[in-house]
């Protein structure tokens, strides 16, 4: 398999290999019927495994689709072909010798394992888009951007959390696909569910013993998570975010509710609802199916190998010097 995969770097047509799925009854957004998931030795649903959360479904619905939440089977197949063509076109664009880039395909970072879905967007519902920002949120963001303007390369503190290897936006919660290395591992012990995301090696340890959240004054970048079981679903409630987390421009009142349900031996359904009354007028929800993969998680040590950040600042200081010399 690997050789076939390798032969299809860049310009490949899409190859879909049908995994014989267990016959799934119609799924609702909130429950999966007629399939009993296995349990751990402790008697709770077994969500364990290593998964890819890569997806071809965009987070928000393309405008031209309006309120269409699902593609037909034929449309799904056509979209898969269109996706492949778009990917090839983008790869060709990226190979433009005048663009500063490295070759994603060379490192296999354009290969992924995904569950194909007939959804038109990860955001569910007739709108399929994230609600507009409230005026107070827009003002908040405008103020942030104004303060940053002209200072973006002053020092490391003005760079993004991801460039600084502090936290990557895919980690959330909610956990989104990062575009490559889209891998997570779930390990369960009595009273806990641990979720490790490969990028950037952060591990959420979620207690399911009913304890309260941290006190309000303790705020952390990835929030504070508490879980409980509802039937076969793990429900995770996360609060205590900092105002620097800024998931989709939200603030410290961000509140995330996630649901994880095993839907087959190889798939988990991941659903989340996000609310922040100071950012959006109403909560919004999305879902993605994760697919089990046969590899372990490999260490993604970020800080330790972060040559990029000092190079960026050094590049800027050099450019400033050049400008200063030119002005003389």
């Amino acid at each position: 398999m690997s050789q076939r995969v390798v032969a299809f770097l860049f310009f490949a047509a899409l190859i879909a290999v049908v995994l014989v799925p267990p016959p799934l009854a119609a799924q609702t957004a909130n429950a999966v019927k007629s399939w009993t998931p296995p349990k751990t030795a402790d008697g709770v649903p077994d969500l364990q495994g290593v998964y890819s959360n890569a997806t071809t479904v965009p987070l928000e619905r393309p405008k031209n689709l309006g309120s269409k939440e699902f593609y037909t089977e034929q449309e799904t197949a056509e979209k898969a072909k269109a996706d492949a063509a778009a990917a090839a076109a983008r790869a060709a664009r990226d190979a433009d010798p005048n663009t500063v880039h490295y070759d994603l395909g060379q490192f296999g970072l354009d290969q992924r394992v995904t569950a194909v879905s007939n959804r038109t967007s990860q955001v569910i519902g007739s709108e399929g888009t994230i609600p507009p920002l409230l005026p107070e949120a827009q003002a908040r963001i405008a103020a942030k951007n104004a303060a940053m303007r002209g200072h973006n390369f002053d020092d490391v503190q003005h760079r993004s959390l991801s460039e600084r290897c502090i936290m990557w936006p895919n980690e959330g919660p909610p956990m989104l696909s990062p575009g490559y290395n889209s891998d997570l591992q779930i390990v369960q012990g009595p009273g806990y569910v641990a979720i490790m995301q490969e990028m950037i090696h952060d591990t959420r340890i979620i207690p399911t013993d009913g304890r309260p959240h941290l006190p309000e004054n303790i705020r952390v970048l990835m929030g504070d998570s508490r879980g409980h079981w509802e039937g076969n679903t793990l429900v995770i409630d996360t609060t205590n975010f900092t105002d620097r987390t800024a998931f989709r421009n939200s603030g410290e009142n961000l509140h995330v509710i996630e649901r994880l349900t095993r839907t087959s031996d190889k798939t988990l359904l991941y659903q989340f609802t996000v609310d922040d009354p100071k950012t959006w007028a109403k909560p919004w929800s999305a879902e993605v199916t994760w697919v089990g993969i046969n590899n372990p998680i490999y260490e993604y040590a970020c800080q330790e190998g972060n040559y990029g950040l000092p190079n960026i600042l050094s590049g800027q200081r050099a450019a400033e010097k050049e400008q200063a010399n030119a002005a003389k």
Binding site: A84, A88, D110
Partner: peptide, 30 residues
């Protein structure tokens, strides 16, 4: 709601999720 079949895609696939370059200001470095 529709049933979903799980298909595995090998080969180039459209990236959704965050852009690969997003974490890195290449233009400033090189």
């Amino acid at each position: 709601m529709r049933a979903m079949s799980a298909l595995l895609i090998a080969g180039a696939a459209l990236l959704t999720g965050l852009p690969a370059w997003a974490h890195h200001a290449f233009a400033q470095e090189f």
